[in-house]
């Protein structure tokens, strides 16, 4: 079963359009949703959760169409939003009591374990916590009601490296259960590289790529050529993006389309995303 299936999901806000989006997150996997600010990551998450009305397409959560299963299916989903949304005046203990009444499978013991593990103070009001503490508390709430799917919107944004590492550890723990899946949006690609099985690139509302992380290195590579060599490449070579370095051209290409004899070096996620996004911008300027 797929934890999440998105088909032709669309939304138009006037000044922003999410173009038809297809994503599949298999059960037991972690998918990273990558994109710059305003790329459509939060919009996608809001559409999945039904917090915004979609203009078209379908969303299936844990095997059931979201229009049929929401809001009850959210018992199976743990969510951390970019802006936590937890009442500012409540402390961790009070939040636990409120959530106990909201989630049917709320687990007090698990919540206590997580708040202790994350060193969250029980009596400090939410508004007095640091940004990192707020994110950790939101994650503790999301992971204390037996969720099978975690949807996390920028959970590591604004956190120091230590706090990011703690969150990563928690997510790795969570995904040890093969029924647990995670959709995590971020623009900090180094975090995603540690935990993701799949990566989806969103840029200006368009899906540029959705692929298994381990396959990305097999599919794409970086070449360093002179301008003349680059210009002489056959049309069949799929160039995901390129830039003039002053000494020549550095390009991200599909390995299987390159002629033999050209040296190819590995590409990392950040490099690939930046090249693909820039290439898309050039296309947009060219065709607009």
């Amino acid at each position: 079963m797929n934890a999440l299936e998105i088909k032709d999901l669309q939304k138009n806000y006037g000044d922003f359009t999410l173009y038809p989006l297809d994503l599949v997150l298999p059960s037991g996997c972690v998918m990273g949703l990558v994109g710059e600010n305003g790329a459509g990551k939060s919009t996608t998450i809001r559409l999945i959760l039904g917090a915004a009305a979609r203009d078209g397409g379908s969303v299936s959560i844990l095997g059931t169409d979201s229009r049929e299963c929401l809001p009850l299916a959210k018992d199976d989903i743990g969510v951390v939003l970019d802006e936590a949304g937890i009442p500012e005046c409540l402390n961790a203990a009070q939040i636990g009591r409120v959530m106990r009444q909201i989630f049917s499978r709320w687990d007090d013991a698990e919540y206590a374990r997580l708040t202790e593990k994350l060193s969250l103070p029980g009596k400090t009001p939410f508004h007095k916590l640091s940004r990192g503490m707020k994110k950790k508390l939101a994650l503790a709430v999301a992971m204390s009601h037996g969720a099978k799917l975690l949807i996390l919107d920028e959970p590591t944004d604004g956190l120091d490296p230590l706090a990011r590492d703690e969150l990563t550890e928690l997510l790795l723990d969570f995904t040890r259960d093969e029924n647990h899946s995670v959709l995590i949006s971020s623009h900090i690609l180094s975090d995603l590289e540690k935990i993701c099985d799949y990566v989806a690139f969103l840029h200006r509302g368009r899906l540029l790529l959705c692929e298994e992380k381990d396959r990305i290195g097999e599919i794409f590579g970086v070449v360093h050529l002179t301008r003349e060599e680059f210009a002489a490449l056959p049309c069949s070579v799929a160039v995901a993006g390129s830039r003039d370095t002053g000494y020549g051209v550095e390009a991200v290409v599909r390995r299987d389309t390159l002629p033999r004899g050209i040296a190819v070096s590995p590409v990392d996620l950040e490099q690939l995303f930046i090249y693909m996004a820039k290439e898309e911008n050039v296309h947009e300027r060219t065709y607009s």
């Binding site: 809001r46 917090a51 936590a84 009442p87 005046c89 909201i102 949807i151």
Partner: peptide, 18 residues
């Protein structure tokens, strides 16, 4: 008003509450 200020209204989308 407090719910809007705290973005609780947006967080409702994450809870099993209509």
């Amino acid at each position: 008003s407090y719910d809007e200020k705290d973005r609780w209204c947006g967080y409702l989308g994450a809870l099993p509450v209509s």
